[in-house]
Simulated scan of single mutants.
Amino acid sequence: MRVPRLFLPVALEDGATLVLSEERAHYLKTVLRLRVGAELVVFDGSGGECDAEVELLSRAESRLRLGSRRDRSAESPLSLHLGLGISRGDRMDLVIQKAVELGVAAISPLIAERTVVRLDDGRRASRWVHWQRVAQSACEQCHRNRIPHLAEPQPLQQWLDEVRGTRLLLDPAGTHAIGEVTPTAEGIVLLSGPEGGFSPSERAQAEAAGFMRVRFGPRILRAETAAIAALTAAQLLWGDLRS
Results as ranks from 00 to 15, higher is better:
Ser58His: 06
Ser58Val: 04
Ser58Pro: 14
Ser58Gly: 15
Arg59Phe: 08
Arg59Asn: 05
Arg59Trp: 04
Arg59Cys: 04
Arg59Val: 02
Arg59Thr: 07
Ala60Ser: 15
Ala60Met: 09
Ala60Glu: 15
Ala60Trp: 08
Ala60Gln: 14
Ala60Arg: 15
Ala60Val: 03
Glu61Asp: 15
Glu61Cys: 13
Glu61Thr: 14
Glu61Ser: 13
Ser62Asp: 01
Ser62Asn: 02
Ser62Ile: 05
Ser62Arg: 07
Arg63Ser: 08
Arg63His: 09
Leu64Gln: 02
Leu64Ile: 10
Leu64Met: 03
Arg65Glu: 00
Arg65Asn: 01
Arg65Val: 08
Leu66Phe: 14
Leu66Cys: 04
Leu66Gly: 02
Gly67Phe: 11
Gly67Thr: 01
Gly67His: 06
Gly67Cys: 01
Ser68Ile: 10
Arg69Trp: 00
Arg69Thr: 01
Arg69Ser: 04
Arg69Pro: 02
Arg69Glu: 02
Arg70Ile: 08
Arg70His: 13
Arg70Glu: 06
Arg72Asp: 01
Arg72Cys: 04
Arg72Ala: 15
Ser73Val: 08
Ser73Gln: 08
Glu75Met: 00
Glu75Pro: 06
Glu75Cys: 07
Glu75Gly: 01
Glu75Asp: 10
Ser76Gly: 11
Ser76Ala: 11
Ser76Ile: 13
Pro77Gly: 12
Pro77Glu: 12
Pro77Gln: 12
Leu78Tyr: 13
Ser79Thr: 14
Ser79Ala: 13
Ser79Glu: 08
Leu80Cys: 00
Leu80Glu: 04
His81Ala: 11
Leu82Asp: 11
Leu82Val: 13
Gly83Tyr: 02
Gly83Ser: 07
Leu84Lys: 10
Leu84Met: 14
Gly85Ala: 12
Gly85Cys: 12
Gly85Leu: 11
Ile86Met: 05
Ile86Gln: 03
Ser87His: 05
Ser87Asn: 04
Ser87Phe: 00
Ser87Cys: 07
Arg88His: 11
Gly89Asn: 12
Gly89Ala: 14
Gly89Trp: 05
Gly89Pro: 00
